[in-house]
């Protein structure tokens, strides 16, 4: 049985349909890349899964639990951690305190939570910044802080929204490495990512959204050939009839 199942999720904002009848499943231990142009409904879908939005139709199942109607904190307690596209650290708290708060879900005692938090900070290589205030960190550091904070709630499934967005090129390999190490720990991941090279290399499977609908679902090597995906990203002028060659050279076909 799949760890996470999204079944026919529809979410409207007034007349705008942000998610339309979206269905896919995530298996235990899998890394699923969620891609799509801006406005495709990726972050909305994350908000629906984690309880920030209530969908107009559909159900989300996580390990036999229905998630629709649960509050975000309840969803987290079931074992789903997340990061935010627009980063949301606790600004006036130190890096260590940010992670401690999350670890306190299991460890009410501050010194025990502190020890646990330090191990996550070591994992994301922010140990030397532990006493800085979160507001003083760079974007890349904040991304890693959010990752550590999400991990400190000991999730089984992590939803990562734009891991490399707004991060300078040199930091990207560090973040990609981190994701690899998360997988080694047995975590299941759903990752929203715009950087095609990154997402193609880390994902076992890609789910592509466009205008709120799933337009492709499969291994990276197959998804990149999908006509509708290329149309969505680049317009139909770039679609090569045979689907043999990728425009723009963003990704090579053999890397998955």
């Amino acid at each position: 049985m799949a760890l996470l199942t999204v079944e026919g999720i529809t979410k409207r904002f007034g007349g705008l349909v942000a998610n339309h009848n979206i269905s896919f499943a995530v298996e235990q231990g899998e890394i699923v890349g969620l891609i799509g142009p801006n406005g495709a409904g990726k972050s909305t879908l994350f908000d629906v899964i984690t309880g920030y939005y209530r969908p107009d139709a559909g159900e989300v199942r996580f390990d036999r639990h229905g998630l629709v109607g649960r509050r975000p904190d309840q969803v987290n307690r079931l074992g789903i951690g997340r990061t935010f596209q627009k980063l949301r650290p606790f600004h006036a708290m130190t890096v260590l305190e940010n992670v401690m708060v999350a670890a306190m879900r299991h460890q009410a005692d501050p010194s025990a939570a502190r020890r646990e938090a330090l191990s996550y900070l070591e994992f994301v290589e922010l140990l030397d910044k532990r006493d800085s205030y979160a507001r003083d960190l760079s974007t890349g550091q904040r991304k890693r802080l959010e990752l550590a904070r999400a991990m400190a709630t000991r999730p089984r499934l992590l939803l990562l929204d734009e891991v490399t967005g707004g991060v300078d090129q040199r930091t990207i390999p560090t973040l990609v490495q981190l994701i690899g190490r998360l997988r080694e720990q047995g975590l299941t991941l759903v990752v929203i990512e715009h950087n095609m090279r990154v997402i193609m290399s880390i994902s076992d499977r890609i789910v592509a959204l466009h205008l709120g609908e799933v337009i492709a679902d499969g291994p990276p090597s197959e998804v990149v050939k999908e006509r509708r995906l290329i149309e969505a990203y680049l317009g139909d002028a770039f679609v090569v009839p045979s689907g043999e060659r990728l425009p723009s050279g963003e990704s090579s076909r053999g890397n998955a």
Partner: peptide, 15 residues
């Protein structure tokens, strides 16, 4: 303090 700083983020860590 977490709730004061950011209620949504506080929810995301199970508060």
């Amino acid at each position: 303090r977490a709730i004061r700083e950011d209620p949504e983020a506080a929810q995301s860590v199970g508060i």
